[in-house]
Amino acid sequence: MEEYCIHLAILCCIYLILAHSFNISFGLAGLLNLAHIATYAIGAYTYSILTIDYGYHFVAAFLLSGVGAALFSVFVGAIAARLRGDYFALGSLGFYFVVSALLINWREVTRGVLGIAGVPRPELLEIDFYENRNFLVLAVILCLGCLACMYLLQVSPFGRLLRAQSENEFAAMSLGRDVARARNLSFLISSAFAGFSGAIFASYLNYVDPSSFSLTEMILVLSMVVVGRPGSFWGVTLSTIFLVLLPEPLRFLDFPPSAIGPLRQIVYSAILVGVVYWRKEALFPRRRVV
């Protein structure tokens, strides 16, 4: 039971970083980047490949996983410069499928659908991080560090600018603010943190494969931000913990194992639909024109 609780706590740490990173681009900047889960995947794969194939140390591989994911966001930023609203969401979805196809078909690097096994856990200060209790301490430290950075960003002038431009981009421009640059920067930062969470994920499970980064994962992350209220730091924190723990009681019900996975997705989707239905005005405010 203790191992099980530690497992859930580590999952909470990973998803907290991931959900908050998505909250930067979606909650603050108002950009529904459906390729966000792809940046999570890039972080996980970058960490796995660097540690296994190139023997990188945990710290270097962890930092580079964020850099790799951030570099990918340059492409997403290029779409955002040309597309708005729903069109941007569709464009970013296209990018998700490109990454997904690469993970499956670029076998020389990603090992295709078989995935990459044996991803090492950190070797730091002679602590055995293969012991889950120790890994939890590391995950909590990394999670608190990432969340502190994202909180400071949210209350900074830059966070204020992101919120302003998402509400009225023309008014933000008329204050002399470079809205396109702010959006690109928001992608860069949110992707870097998604990359970090991907690295922790890969390190924890010792394994990555394309099925871990499916669109259903994107729906889960989207639910975490939407339920917690986009842009709200504490709301997203609570909703993430709630949604990670929510399906767990299902394990103790008398359902066949094959039904539990789909049931989880149904629960998440139902919550998402309900929240969107009841709070659509707050979630999708009317855009203003010049």
């Binding site: 009225n168 008329s174 405010p285 203003r288 024109v289 010049v290």
Partner: peptide, 9 residues
């Protein structure tokens, strides 16, 4: 702006 360019939220 004609349509109020303030940030209402």
């Amino acid at each position: 702006f004609q349509n109020f360019g303030i940030f209402r939220e």
